[in-house]
Computed example of a mutant assay.
Amino acid sequence: MTRKPWTGPELVRLETLYPNTPMRHLEVIFQRNERAIYAKAYGMGLKRSAEYLASPASGRLVPGDKRGANCQFQKGQTPWNAGKKGWQAGGRAAETQFKKGEMAGRAQALYKPVGHERITKDGILQRKIRDDGPLHRRWKSVHSIIWEEQHGPIPAGHIVVFTDKGPRHTDITINRLELISRAENARRNTIHRYPPELKHVIRKLAKLKRKVQEKQREESNGSH
């Protein structure tokens, strides 16, 4: 069926026939496909009548309709896959299937066994402690492991930190570690741990840095 514009008489006829005429008949009458007829009817705001929708011609299921009943499972009927675990292809398919825990490609190349150690970008020595679970829970800092070996699990809201400024990936001993709250750690890493005179200088430097950045942005925007 070729695409062609709708004429005035066709639109009048469509408005008359659409509410109660099966689609297969409309396709023959207007020499257009189902999609074109539905689109035009929708654009005109036409709808099927309640009588048509309730009739077998609409193809819709209504309460009490027995169509397809012969294909339904009957009460007490045993499905064909009862007692079977999964589906197994024939031939040599089983030989090429991935086995549980098996890896290949990039995953295999990047895999590190439990016990492997690495140094993070922050200079922290970590050790892999498990293969399952979220990635960030598979690794743990070695200094935390050493502290827990001596004192037990780290309490909630606390962390283990180094007491000195030495390297955090080597020569890790219990005497270099201490347990502090996260709140205390936050205080130690802010300017509040400095004397008033130094805090004043730090604030002035931060303000000056912001001014320089603002000036640089203004000059950059003005050059475009």
Results as ranks from 00 to 15, higher is better:
1 M>L: 15
6 W>H: 06
10 E>P: 01
10 E>Y: 05
11 L>K: 14
13 R>T: 10
14 L>R: 00
19 P>A: 09
20 N>Y: 05
23 M>G: 01
23 M>D: 05
26 L>G: 04
27 E>I: 10
30 F>P: 02
32 R>E: 00
32 R>N: 02
33 N>W: 05
33 N>Q: 10
34 E>T: 12
36 A>F: 01
37 I>R: 00
40 K>R: 15
41 A>G: 07
42 Y>I: 11
46 L>W: 05
46 L>Q: 04
48 R>S: 04
50 A>T: 11
51 E>Q: 07
53 L>I: 07
53 L>R: 09
62 V>S: 11
62 V>W: 08
63 P>V: 09
64 G>I: 11
64 G>M: 10
68 G>D: 09
69 A>S: 15
70 N>Y: 13
71 C>Y: 12
74 Q>C: 13
75 K>M: 13
78 T>D: 15
79 P>E: 14
81 N>D: 15
81 N>M: 15
84 K>M: 14
85 K>A: 14
87 W>L: 11
88 Q>E: 14
88 Q>S: 13
91 G>M: 06
91 G>K: 06
91 G>W: 08
92 R>I: 12
94 A>I: 11
97 Q>N: 14
100 K>P: 09
100 K>W: 10
102 E>C: 03
106 R>F: 01
111 Y>N: 08
114 V>W: 06
120 T>C: 10
121 K>P: 00
122 D>Q: 11
124 I>R: 05
125 L>R: 09
126 Q>T: 10
127 R>W: 02
130 R>Y: 06
130 R>P: 02
131 D>T: 07
131 D>M: 08
132 D>W: 10
136 H>G: 12
140 K>Y: 06
147 W>G: 00
147 W>L: 02
149 E>C: 06
152 G>W: 08
154 I>N: 08
161 V>S: 00
162 F>S: 00
163 T>H: 08
166 G>H: 02
167 P>K: 09
173 T>Y: 10
176 R>K: 12
178 E>R: 08
178 E>F: 03
187 R>F: 05
194 Y>S: 02
196 P>A: 01
197 E>A: 04
205 L>Y: 00
206 A>V: 01
209 K>D: 03
214 E>S: 07
215 K>I: 00
220 S>F: 08
221 N>V: 06
223 S>F: 07
